[in-house]
Design a binder for these strands. Structure first.
Lengths: 202, 202
DNA sequence: CCTACCGATCGGTAGG
DNA sequence: CCTACCGATCGGTAGG
């Protein structure tokens, strides 16, 4: 028998744990989609066999559901925090757009998965996610309406504008590179300006 | 033997042909994604067995490649036609955005598939598609730059603005309903106005 | 257009 | 963490 004395510190080797599984799933789901990713590929990235994954997760669907649900909850929390205590409606929309844009630059994989594979999330999680997204879009629409009433914005089609603003921010996840010429913060600032323009800032 | 006299007019029954297969694939790929759609589901919609599909197509991948390639070629053709003979740069950008927005309202399924499953298109078709998309984005960026030089637009980050404009139009495919309150043309007009605002129309 | 069938791979379990 | 294995399903072919 080879000397395999148990010691307190394990050999310096990457530990596989639930967080590592999620991290691998995040990358692969974002690249190939939920249905385009096999658990054997996730296992491969981690250097283990497929059945060993089940020491760290319950099911493939759980990986997707957790990623989509947590991301969507955080988007809503971001929004609430961004506008909290801010009275000026222009500044409220600017901050709401900025924080949404920023998240899409800093959490690209999560954003891509939410926007691509939301239909593959099983109930009841899917309904909860869709409800949160509706609420977010409604909140943005409400800001535009409010600004129009106050004479700060000029855009009667607030629903169309709200969708346009949000999806413009989502697009950041498709092309942003961390090592690119612009920082996430700069891009977020720029896109929040676009949001105000779409709303018809006077 | 039942009387099955061949007559010129076939019994009034939906004929399965390559166009019908493509139509079914279009709907299912858009709903569930390429990897999320089984050929058995396409066959089911058409009321035939899976192997019978092969009388009307060569492979599942061909269905995807044709949809994505033809749509992308048409987007580029749309663009060229929209700006042809138009000198004013503001009008050129307005028309380019309008035609792109319009296509996303009138060809929702195609647009959803292109944006979701482009990574599943095999080479060499994928490279051709990506090249056309790059060319389109570059053209939009070029219009913004041109307008800035002429003092018509005010947006130094033309690359960011071009991506934002295009993706804002893409978003239409996600929420537009033919039976909704707005016509495709109205939505396209509205979004082309947003495009000019993002470009910093003075 | 069908039935019958192919090898490959899927997500997941048993049992250690 | 592994090997061995499960039933189900995948895209696709043979042959009529």
């Amino acid at each position: 028998m080879a000397s395999k004395v148990p010691i307190d510190q394990p050999e310096a080797k990457t530990t596989v744990n639930p967080a590592a599984v999620r991290e691998a799933a995040l990358t692969l789901f974002a690249e190939r989609g939920y249905h385009g990713t096999a658990l054997s590929q996730i296992a491969g990235v981690l250097g283990i066999r497929t059945p060993s994954l089940y020491n760290h997760m319950r099911a493939k669907q759980d990986l997707l559901r957790d990623i989509v649900s947590e991301t969507t909850e955080q988007v809503w929390a971001d929004y609430e925090q961004a506008v909290e205590g801010v009275d000026d409606v222009v500044e409220r929309l600017r901050r709401a757009a900025r924080v949404y844009a920023l998240r899409h630059a800093t959490h690209r994989r999560e954003a891509l998965i939410v926007n691509r594979d939301i239909a593959s999330v099983e109930e009841p999680a899917r309904s909860r996610v869709l409800e949160l997204r509706r609420r977010h879009a409604q909140a943005i629409k409400g800001l535009i309406d409010e600004g129009v009433r106050e004479g700060r914005f000029d855009e009667p089609e607030s629903t169309l504008a709200a969708f346009g603003i949000l999806e413009m921010c989502v697009s950041i996840a498709r092309w942003f590179r961390e090592d690119g010429p612009q920082s996430a913060e700069t891009v977020a600032d720029t896109y929040s300006t676009y949001a105000l323009r779409v709303a018809g800032l006077g």
